[in-house]
Amino acid sequence: MDQSATLDVESLKITQEQFVLSSQSLHLQRPASDAIYPVGLYGWRKRFLYFFLLLLLVTMIVNLALTVWIIKVMNFSVNGMGNLHLDQEGIHLDGISEFLLPLYVKEIQSRGDNLLVLRSEKNVTLNARNGQGQVTGQLTVGPEAVEAQCQKLEVRSKDGRKLLFTADEQKVVMTTEKFSVTGSEGAAFGHSVETPLIQAKTSQDLRLESPTRTLTMEAPRGVDVSAAQGQLKVSSRKDIQLESTDGEILLDANTIQLGSLPLGIYTPSPSQASQEQAVYEVCVCPSGKIYLSPAEGVSTCQAMSNICLWS
């Protein structure tokens, strides 16, 4: 048994020596090389890199400075920017604000103690659109005129309950208690005017005048022209015609005067006849012309009078 153990140990030693010899025989020596290859940036490349990094650093510093300056000037904050403030109620603008493009908002209102001013170098236009985007109403305030385009224009009182003025394509209605025209030339109407009453102020005269055409007053149930205090004067450059188709013309007064009536009988001197004659009678020609004739015991009116013949 001891002899077998000794043989095993010796065999192990021989195997180890063979392994060492085989390992030494497989070891190869690398050829030596004298060339040296440097690693890194040298020369102009290195200088260009440093210059680029310095330029990038300066650009970042200038950009940061400009950003801080813009934030300071524009007054940026958590609630808004400058005069623009955002909150739950909407947007608040303080001072003068300029919009270069169209503005779409639901409501524009000013503070309780300030006025709302819309200013433009050309005009200010407000548009109302329907669901399809079509313009249903437009208000344009320009340098020459104020134009409103809508189906119906209404002007109401301060509380919004009373309608003061309305206008559409068919008519214009004014519901105020008094309509005053204070211009020196009065009111000019191109067509007929329908009103139940035309009245002047207490201390002023009422004057209806048509300088170049006729003045016509018509009513299905009559026209009442009265002067409570003072005189009523109707004058015309040519004829004044009073016509009644189904009724009569009534002159009811204590004194009715017809001045400047011509004399119907020829006299050598009308002025002498008027001085000698004290009483005259009023005569009417078939044409309707009125003239005076000296009053005598019987009527002196003649259908063939010179006034009637030359009328």
Rank of each mutant, 00 (worst) to 15 (best):
G160E: 08
W69A: 15
E276L: 13
L251F: 12
C150F: 04
L208F: 08
A253L: 03
E185I: 12
L56E: 10
A295K: 07
S226P: 02
V298I: 14
G80P: 01
L232Y: 04
S120M: 01
F48L: 08
I256T: 08
S299V: 12
V9K: 02
D159Q: 11
P268E: 12
R129H: 10
T59A: 03
L86R: 09
K13S: 15
I91P: 01
D239G: 01
L197T: 07
A167D: 05
T245V: 15
L93Q: 03
L21E: 13
T195M: 06
L197F: 10
F19Y: 07
T15R: 04
S77F: 07
S192I: 05
V146R: 03
F19T: 06
E243G: 01
Y291K: 01
H85M: 11
Q109N: 13
K171G: 09
A35H: 09
I198S: 09
M217C: 09
E169H: 10
Q151C: 05
L84C: 05
K201Y: 04
Q275Y: 08
L215P: 00
V39D: 11
S235P: 02
L21G: 04
V298P: 00
I240E: 12
Q231S: 07
V172N: 05
I91F: 06
M217E: 10
R47N: 10
L115V: 11
S210H: 07
E121L: 08
A227Q: 11
E209M: 09
S274I: 15
T140C: 12
M1F: 10
D8V: 13
V117P: 00
S77I: 08
M81E: 07
N114R: 11
V234T: 09
E243T: 04
P31E: 15
V141A: 06
W310G: 09
L153P: 00
I249F: 03
R47Y: 08
L163Q: 01
A253D: 07
T125N: 09
E177G: 14
T202S: 12
S260R: 15
Q16I: 15
D224T: 06
H191Y: 07
G112W: 10
L26F: 04
Q88D: 14
M81R: 05
E209Q: 10
G131P: 01
S110W: 07
F179M: 06
L101F: 10
A303H: 10
V105G: 03
V193F: 14
Q277D: 09
